[in-house]
Write a protein that binds this DNA or RNA. Structure first.
Lengths: 333, 333
DNA sequence: GAACGGGGCTGAATCGATTCGATCCGGTGC
DNA sequence: GCACCGGATCGAATCGATTCAGCCCCGTTC
């Protein structure tokens, strides 16, 4: 059986309370006692039992992170950012993919509640405010990622999608494009909706005579992007847009893949293409992709920091943090 | 404060022992008592305290997963497979990225030990056998992913890289290629070494007169792949290989991106290109990538299953599970 | 009707770390 | 010489769930 704090105390010839103090407040213990205890710890290969610690002290060293789309490299990067920051605080991430499944999302939140995680980061799909409120009542704060809470009851970290949509469209218009297609969907995804709205604003604000059309997809995946590309390609040439704003880079990569005629890509000459997220593969695409970069790691890191603050200070006032996307111009537009 | 089992017992008019029985062995409790207790649980919104449970019963509901390269979609898929399986057992994954940093790897293992995870899945970088042995001494089993333990002391799940390397080279030779470059590295990565060795075997076994050269990279990334491509392109045309076997798909995507002259891809006509892993982006590349598919989700799922078995039966004999890769032929070779 | 069996339930002991009031002790001040 | 102080240490109480020996009660058996 593994050594417990009692064994350490016995070997070091002190009380368990003192061992605990060495572990948690070494500066309140006489230096040579510290040394003695530490060498006992070493000898016995003692490792703190986190369950007991948590039971008594109520502090947890895990944070839960629920992500809805594990396939998207963007979320991956957000997770990485959060994980790096967590690691610096000696905290581990419990990681849950929901695959956009609301039931699964709920089950993960239940699991986190049992585990008494320190807090929850969540990119929610369904409406989870009631569950989050319940967690908060138990002292478990949460931070929304890439989403707002309707009523501002929870902190959030996200990127200004409206601005991003506008920047994308402005760039396309500024480089002479006049028939813009926005590809994405479903539009009950808030982010997508905002990106479209932003593009609309840019078009409306422009002096030029710009048309904007919407090509709806059922999901934000490479396959859906390719399918949308096929549909565009099927049109007579003059009816095709001269620019496409894809709702995210996965869509854009799919589009890029399909917008090829006789082995030649239509991008960027006949059709400019711009994506969103700037995932690592965007730069590595056949035609390097112009995209709106989200500071994904920073988002994750920031969310985790806010979460830790709130878990320390339960009175903290929820705040909405919004980052600006950055236009990364490459070959595709 | 959140309700405890004592509160539930009081409200239901039974003892705490009975509540615990309802929770853990409902069939040993009279049906109407079960109902009464359950409604008390409902009323109080009682949630089990996992820390207390674990302290007393010693059972854990988390599994640790240490991955060395979170950027590679392949590992992502492995994680997903493991996570799906874990979820079915009501277990959550604690997820640690080491970024090929040995110190970080060690720290995660320490953290897992404190948390008394049920077991550890690990795609190790450094030599961790001593730490894993120590965990095992504490009753925490581990399963290696994509690696063997030198002495067969731990179970492992991996793909036959040697066979994969051979299949890749055989395919290239079979389609008439005679000057094959293997791109990858560093070669102290066991997997990469095996893939190269497999390719060598295929070349040696071939009746045709085939040359094989090694183009070394410092890492298995898109950027390194692109750099290797530049180097190949810099050669006079007749000295270029007519086929490239990339150590993984990230390298292959980088190569694909750089092997372009005058806006025309050399792939597949002048240079056939084959990758390894068959990540989701492989099919979506400019020239859809021929690759050796690893059953990544199955790997993750299998590893988790073995881990759970071993955590249940400490006497279980370690076993090495090896999957065969599958050649997926697309346009690039 | 006494002995027996067993289902259903009780409640105290337990897991291991933390916490905090109590205790000890050497030094200081008067 | 005595009271007092404060740093260092002690050790009992505690967190909440699980476990198990033991009790109660009712039906069965002979």
């Amino acid at each position: 059986m593994a050594a417990s704090i009692r064994d350490v105390a016995q070997l070091a010839g002190v009380s368990v309370g003192t061992v605990s103090n060495v572990l948690n407040r070494p500066d309140e213990v006489a230096p040579d006692t510290v040394t003695r205890v530490n060498s006992a710890i070493e000898q016995l290969a003692y490792v703190r039992n986190d369950a007991a610690r948590r039971l008594r002290a109520g502090v947890s060293r895990t944070v839960g992170f629920v992500v809805l789309d594990g396939q998207n490299p963007f979320f991956n990067d957000v997770v990485r950012g959060a994980e790096d920051e967590a690691f610096r605080h000696g905290i581990a991430l419990i990681h849950g993919n929901t695959d956009e499944d609301v039931a699964r999302e709920r089950m993960y939140l239940d699991l986190f509640e049992e585990q008494q995680v320190r807090g929850v980061l969540i990119a929610p799909h369904g409406d989870v405010t009631s569950q989050l409120a319940r967690l908060r009542a138990r002292g478990i704060p949460s931070v929304l990622i890439d989403r707002f809470s309707g009523d501002g009851r929870f902190s959030s970290v996200s990127v200004d999608s409206l601005a991003g949509g506008r920047m994308a469209a402005e760039h396309l218009i500024g480089t002479g494009r006049r028939r813009i297609a926005v590809v994405g969907g479903p539009y009950d995804l808030r982010q997508m909706n905002d990106r479209l709205a932003g593009a609309r604003i840019a078009v409306d604000d422009s002096d030029a005579d710009v048309e904007l059309e919407v090509v709806a997809t059922e999901a934000m995946t490479v396959a859906e992007g390719a399918a949308a590309g096929e549909r565009i390609l099927a049109r007579p040439r003059r009816e095709r847009p001269d620019a496409v704003f894809a709702g995210n880079d996965l869509l854009a990569l799919g589009l890029l893949q399909s917008l090829v005629v006789d082995g030649r890509s239509l991008v960027p000459d006949e059709i400019a293409l711009i994506g969103f997220d700037d995932i690592p593969f965007a730069a590595a695409a056949a035609v390097p992709l112009t995209s709106l970069r989200q500071p994904s790691r920073v988002i994750g890191r920031t969310a985790l920091r806010i979460l830790l603050e709130e878990s320390t200070d339960p009175e903290a006032i929820p705040r909405q943090t919004v980052f600006q996307p950055e236009l990364i111009v490459r070959a595709s537009a």
